[in-house]
Computed example of a mutant assay.
Amino acid sequence: MDNYKAMNSKDKKRAITDLLLNNAMYIIIVIAVICIGIVQPKYFSLASIVNIITLTAAKLPIALGIAGCIVLTGTDISAGRQVGLAAVVIASMSITNNRIFPGLEPLPIIVPLLAAIVVCGLIGFVNGFSVAKFKLHPFIVTLATQLITYGIILIYLKLGTNNGQTLSGFDPVYRNIVTGTLLTIGSVKIPMYVLYAIIMVAVMWVIWNKTTFGKNMFAVGSNEEAATVSGVNVSRTIIMVFILAAIMYALTGFIDGARIASVNANTGFNYECDAIAACVIGGVSFVGGTGRISGIVIGVLLLQIIFTGLNYMSVDQNYLYIIKGFIILIACAIDMRKYLTKK
């Protein structure tokens, strides 16, 4: 009887230890947020909360896109540069004093948006096709397309008389569509792109959970050979995942250009790091076949909560890179521990 009680006690301790280790990232973030709030009470103000929500909405599309690649046990490090290319393409057709295409008046916003989606979609197709047909590792493929995309951005910005300069002076219609007021809470305004982010989350949830494509994606991520035997068109699924991801990157660029009100060669730089960190924090496993849309939303939200808090603490921006690196490292370590424990 004593042995049983001792064993039961060990099981409880192990369960508590597992719970703490598996949720270590959430615990660390909660503690950090509480500490920041104590030092800087304004961190919990309405303006701060709305700022966190808007930043989350702006970063959600790229995370939703890259998550599909991670579900396939891959990644997409070209994501940030695709965001930058989309933003540049849209900006070049939506500015009032056009130096890239001299004399061109701002086009109806649907035209540059579709152009950006097509351009990014082509890059997504190249990524997916290379992974599916040539059996290349997604990291290598997207490293190559990251460099190619950045080169295209630099060349594009030198067209006409622009000479690589920052693009600004957007058509008010474009800016209003993205950053116009959705609703007002007190003296704080919530922009339109928050609504767009909600719609994208809903659409991606349906795609992941209610379509054959979504089921195939998880099947391929869990076990590619088993998916093939089950009749899943693995190549088509992989290609479609990367194309869908690229579309989300284009939408991120669409929002980002209007939100920041200027676009240059560094737009989108390192965005994929934040997106990958958010996905892993939100439970999208690099082991493959695991992930939920709700987890991605939570991951992006938590990341913005901590980064906004660090800004309130006036932490040097250079240290944020170090912090992001540690977050990715810890999150991946926790993810791998969960996988090994299950195995």
Rank of each mutant, 00 (worst) to 15 (best):
A63L: 07
Y249R: 01
K5V: 06
R292C: 06
V280D: 03
I207V: 04
G257F: 05
G68W: 06
G299P: 07
Y321L: 15
L107S: 04
N23A: 05
I199D: 08
V173E: 09
A91T: 01
I322Y: 14
I155G: 07
G169F: 01
V220H: 00
G124L: 14
F254A: 06
A227M: 08
V287G: 00
L251E: 04
I293F: 05
Y339A: 01
I190E: 06
K5P: 03
N8G: 04
V83A: 02
N51M: 14
A15R: 11
Y196L: 12
A265D: 12
I52H: 10
K215I: 08
I140P: 04
G74L: 05
Q146A: 09
G231N: 10
M192N: 15
H137S: 07
S94E: 11
S285Q: 05
I100T: 11
G151E: 00
N3Y: 13
S9Y: 12
G268N: 04
L147V: 03
A32W: 11
F170W: 07
I31N: 10
N176I: 10
I28T: 11
C273Y: 14
S78T: 04
V88N: 06
A116D: 00
D335P: 05
V131C: 08
Q317R: 13
A57E: 09
K158W: 12
M192L: 07
L195H: 03
V111G: 04
A58C: 10
G128I: 08
P41Y: 13
R259N: 15
L136E: 09
S130W: 05
N318V: 11
I36N: 08
T341L: 11
P172E: 05
V206D: 10
I16Y: 10
L85N: 02
Y156Q: 08
I49D: 12
P61W: 08
Y271T: 04
L143I: 15
N127W: 07
S45I: 14
Q82F: 03
G268R: 06
I322Q: 14
G68Y: 07
K59C: 11
T149Q: 02
L136V: 08
I66A: 01
L147I: 02
A245Y: 02
Y321A: 11
A6Q: 15
G291K: 08
N216K: 00
T54W: 05
I247M: 05
S92N: 00
L182F: 14
G299R: 11
M336S: 07
L302S: 10
A219Y: 00
A144Q: 00
G80N: 02
W205N: 05
A333T: 09
E272M: 08
I190P: 08
S222V: 02
P172S: 04
S235F: 03
A277F: 14
N264I: 08
F129M: 14
V300G: 04
V88W: 11
L19V: 10
G74N: 03
V232I: 04
F326T: 15
I293T: 01
R259C: 10
K133S: 12
